[in-house]
């Protein structure tokens, strides 16, 4: 059961990620990114992280991707032009990525004592999570809310219409 679910949603995940690279229109890329994030939520659930699975769907597939789709439609982004891009990115970057993946895969396959994941095993409840979050890590949690507030103010200031041009116009 766990094996089937893992293979199915890992397949969705990889297919969505590859589709993100192959599509030329940003809206198609955004929709395949939603597929990736939703299947990742299922994988989190399989690993027993039930709160994170819910947060993944609400924050990533919900809030962040809505923002992306909204910006794509607001800017009326069309098909991207297929230029070859910088030569350095292709000549140095792509072999470096392949090398990185090879090194990571070799490391991962050589890890000793890595266990397995079975269904309904080692579930972390939201209570366990909040017990640590609101006792030990209360200060970082509160600081995060200030970070979000600053980000909202920054976004509003950056995206305000006629930013920096208003004195000249009047």
């Amino acid at each position: 059961m766990h094996l089937i679910l893992f293979l199915l949603f890992a397949g969705f995940c990889l297919a969505g990620a590859i589709n993100l690279l192959l599509q030329t229109h940003p809206i198609n890329s955004a929709l395949s990114l939603i597929v990736v994030m939703t299947s990742l939520a299922v994988l989190y659930l399989l690993l027993g992280a039930e709160f994170l699975a819910a947060a993944q769907i609400i924050v990533y597939s919900g809030a962040i991707m809505v923002l992306f789709v909204f910006v794509v439609m607001l800017l009326n982004a069309g098909r991207e032009e297929r230029t070859l891009g910088s030569r350095a990115a292709r000549i140095v970057g792509l072999p470096a990525v392949v090398a990185l993946l090879a090194v990571l895969a070799t490391l991962i396959l050589h890890i000793q004592g890595l266990g397995g994941a079975a269904i309904s095993q080692g579930i972390t409840t939201t209570e366990d999570l909040s017990r640590v979050l609101f006792h030990e890590l209360l200060l970082p949690f509160e600081v995060t809310s200030v970070l979000i507030l600053i980000a909202i103010l920054g976004a509003v200031a950056l995206a305000r219409h006629g930013n920096g041009e208003r004195p000249a116009a009047k």
Binding site: C13, A17, L47, L104, I108, L109, A117, A118
Partner: peptide
């Protein structure tokens, strides 16, 4: 059981993509 190494390989593949 699904070995956890598979999950790590998937995460490495996603990062590389």
């Amino acid at each position: 059981e699904v070995p956890l190494a598979w999950y790590l390989l998937l995460s490495a593949a996603l990062f590389s993509l």
